[in-house]
């Protein structure tokens, strides 16, 4: 039996299937064992906590925790929504004996609710050594400027999740930086994407997500990296709607954390399901090709006897010339 129980939730089995694919690939690369949670049920998503007096939002995740607890110490939920729902339910179960009794009456056995719940960032940060990542990634993402986008429910409410800084989260950075990517300052990393308002009032999502894309391009970001299927949907799938609604011509790729790491590890975009995205990653691929050319040039130079080892000086200079946050390139709006 592997170390982690894996709760995919609805998104990773449908609209965000590429998140599932890439997550498993990266996990496999580092020998992180995942056991699909058997007979799992819905986490409750947005509706459950707001109906049945809110308690359904506790009971549904409770059953998942119970099943996971049978053979695992920890359960990983890569979807930010699923992660939050389970954490919230666990807190309620710890605090409220009545809730526990109700679930136990339904399950006819003592409830296992202490299973540790992890999100994908937590899992990767604990299981993957950045140095190891750096060794395997061989600077493939050199010069690619990745904007870390956390959205809301990965870190909030802080008193429930206790994960990273809710105002200024940084947990994605060590591993992404280990791929050679540049992580510029991105002020909108926790700004609202519009969330599920896409169903009720689409304009809200379009306006909110547009601003995130606009600021990302302003910061010279080549691709956004997220760990939330709903954020991804709003930023990637709706990017065309945004362009139509506002007459913009944005083309900003949005990657799942596992996809970005996968690219860094040399996996093909198709393998990682990136071809399923609405916005292509041409811009990232171009920079990766440049990095590769540079790398082989360096390799060739290393072959030569007279010590021209190490990084090329002009690349070093280019890196220093664009410190985080100050580069405000306008080439974001491609034609």
């Amino acid at each position: 039996m592997s170390a982690y129980s894996y709760f995919p939730g609805c998104s990773l089995t449908s609209t965000a299937i590429e998140y599932d694919t890439s997550f498993r690939l990266v996990a496999e690369e580092f020998g992180i064992g995942l056991d699909m949670l058997e007979d799992w049920n819905c986490c409750g998503a947005s509706p459950a906590p707001h109906h049945w007096g809110g308690n359904l939002g506790v009971f549904l995740p409770a059953r998942n925790l119970h099943i996971a607890g049978a053979g695992h110490q920890a359960m990983v939920a890569p979807c930010a929504g699923c992660y939050t729902r389970h954490k919230y339910a666990q807190q309620q179960l710890v605090r409220n004996e009545e809730h526990r009794t109700k679930v136990e009456n339904a399950l006819h056995e003592p409830l296992r609710y202490q299973t540790r719940i992890m999100n994908i960032i937590e899992l990767f940060n604990e299981e993957i050594d950045p140095e190891e990542m750096s060794r395997r990634a061989r600077s493939r993402l050199e010069n690619v400027r990745l904007g870390t986008y956390y959205g809301c429910v990965l870190t909030r409410p802080a008193e429930v999740l206790g994960f990273d800084d809710p105002k200024d989260p940084v947990s994605m950075e060590p591993l992404l930086a280990a791929t050679g990517a540049e992580i510029p300052y991105f002020p909108f990393k926790t700004e609202c994407c519009g969330s599920y308002m896409g169903l009720a009032k689409k304009e809200i999502v379009l306006r909110a997500s547009r601003r995130i894309i606009e600021v990302a391009l302003e910061c010279g970001i080549d691709a956004l990296v997220t760990a939330c299927p709903l954020c991804h949907q709003n930023l990637d799938l709706r990017q065309g709607q945004i362009n139509r609604a506002f007459g913009t011509k944005y083309e900003l790729p949005v990657l799942y954390l596992s996809q970005a790491l996968g690219l860094g590890l040399g996996m093909a975009p198709e393998e990682l399901g990136i071809d399923a995205h609405a916005v292509g990653i041409g811009r990232v691929m171009r920079k990766m090709a440049e990095a590769e050319a540079q790398e082989s040039e360096n390799e060739a130079r290393r072959q030569r006897p007279a010590g021209a080892a190490g990084r090329s000086p002009d690349k070093e200079a280019a890196r220093q010339a664009s410190p985080a946050g100050t580069a405000m390139a306008r080439d974001g709006e491609s034609t």
Binding site: P187, E214, E218
Partner: peptide, 8 residues
Amino acid sequence: GKIYPRGG
């Protein structure tokens, strides 16, 4: 609530 860059 926020300060962000736009066109310099």
